[in-house]
């Protein structure tokens, strides 16, 4: 699928939902729980989670690829893990800022 910053997508096999913060141009092979992700509002077709993609997602965490051109914010957690081209996305470390308001 093609991703757009600000767009929201969901897992086809678990409860995970993410918002796209940063995305590379063109088609990407983004999966959650081993299945291609879907635009929010699209109903999944009953596929099940793959055994090698059961790491789970955490709400509020940002997931990035190694190249650094994909960043997703998890808005709803689920049991599947996020992968790009079969490689696990990793949680981006938080750089704490002092609270200003």
């Amino acid at each position: 699928m093609e991703l757009k910053a600000g767009g929201r997508i969901r897992s086809a096999v678990c409860a995970t939902e993410v918002m796209v913060i940063l995305a590379p141009q063109g088609e990407v092979d983004l999966t959650c729980g081993g299945a291609a992700m879907l635009p929010l509002g699209t109903e999944p077709d009953g596929a099940t989670i793959a055994d090698d993609a059961k790491g789970g997602t955490q709400i509020g965490k940002r997931y990035v690829n190694e190249a650094g051109d994909l960043e997703l914010l998890c808005t709803k957690p689920g049991d599947g893990s996020l992968q790009l081209g079969g490689a696990d996305l990793t949680i981006k470390g938080a750089k704490p800022l002092p609270s200003s308001d």
Binding site: I21, I59, G60, K61, L73, P96, S100
Partner: peptide, 9 residues
């Protein structure tokens, strides 16, 4: 907010 606040921090 996303640029300056960490969720549930």
């Amino acid at each position: 907010i996303l640029g300056s606040v960490e969720f549930m921090s």
